[in-house]
Write a protein that binds this DNA or RNA. Structure first.
Lengths: 131, 131, 131, 131
DNA sequence: GTGGTCTAGACCACC
DNA sequence: GTGGTCTAGACCACG
């Protein structure tokens, strides 16, 4: 796993890193049970204070995406969704609104978008039907 | 146009409002040439500091989405994309990555997502082909 | 609201304070919309580093119990439960297991416990039926 | 007795195991005089460092819940409550506060809670009246 | 004024 | 070794 921080990005470092972990998991590059680099190790490689990395892992653990254990490290958790269908649907709609708004303002056409979505979807690791 | 602020949303108020304007334009609810409420008017209706509204308009003008003419108000600009194809593609990919990552973590399936995208796409106002 | 920290308690300061906020809300001493003391103010009154207080508020916001906004402060959120019935039931069972185990080891009788629960329940502020 | 550790649980392993012993005794699955698995045996079955198991037994002996006899093993102690009524009452109140706070935030109603407590109470093994 | 981010550095609990 | 807590202090964004 390679993590990078873009200092020109307005997003805080810890959120940039958290998003990279989320996306790596969603793409299947990180699998459930995989161990992430230790706080100290990652803090050295991306040249960031260890506390900042700890914040990333703390946040992801609260999201249920990681399990961390003192003495062992941080591990990708088994996927699960504890939220109600209603909430999940709302969140998806909101995220989709963001994406499509961006697409329109970038002057893509509906056809472009559906096409690129259909293609990119295959790059992600989706849950089994009856999880 | 109705603008609302969600106090449970972590996004700053000015970013929430800016996104609502962007999305309204993308959905065709606001058309090029339409006039937006004045800073003072909008600051009263959504009960927000006028400086915050001013910041919204400034940001959207910077993005080329609005034109503000002193004394007249703020107007929706003609759509245009000054950016290169490469930059536009990158931005879209990034936005799509965000969306699909969220979808995976919300435990939706690829089929769900393609379906919902295909449906929602129709709610937006896309540019003509050879603009 | 009075907050206290017990330095002989093994629980970290931030968790002690978080639990006091949760319980104050559950007992109706803090109502939705109420403003909590500012980070700096509370850090002075309980004589703790401001970062530690910030951690308390961050955690409670992630639990959906507080809304915090730079420039305004931290506020008690509207109650809501985004979790599925299954998860909520599991969490309740687990918490109940802890309580009853403690009660047995403290040599209370079943009758004592049911009685004290029935009495104490009235001290809390429960959601309306059809929330 | 089966002991399990939940890696998604934030509690340290030794506390998870200690709680399972406490609860097994409170439910009557372990009776006074029963012998617990040896440190080495248990450390193999739950795949945990022997030091961790030793810590569990040490803690439970400190609480007066187990008696460990070197060379023989660890045994469930006779129930006893050396504490004053006042202290016991306080501890129970505190544990109950935790439970009811959790229940409120999980959006259960007072009726739900009293009902579930009345039902679950029967699953535990309570002391005789005038012990 | 408010909360949020980040650094630096100390100390502790876990395994 | 691992992550977690807490302090001290600087700087930024929000409203």
């Amino acid at each position: 796993m390679e993590f990078t921080i873009d200092s020109s990005n307005r997003l805080p470092i810890w959120q940039q890193l958290a998003q990279q972990v989320r996306e790596s998991i969603a793409r299947g590059k990180l699998q459930p049970g995989d161990r992430l680099p230790s706080v100290r190790e990652l803090s050295r490689t991306v040249v960031v204070n260890p506390n900042t990395i700890a914040k990333v892992y703390t946040e992801l653990e609260r999201e249920g995406i990681l399990n961390t254990r003192p003495g062992l490290g941080a591990f990708v958790a088994q996927p699960s969704s504890e939220q109600t269908h209603k909430v999940r649907k709302e969140r998806l709609q909101e995220a989709l609104g963001l994406f499509l708004t961006e697409a329109v303002h970038l002057s893509f056409t509906a056809k472009d978008v559906v096409e690129i979505v259909s293609r990119q979807v295959k790059q992600f690791k989706w849950p089994e039907k009856k999880q």
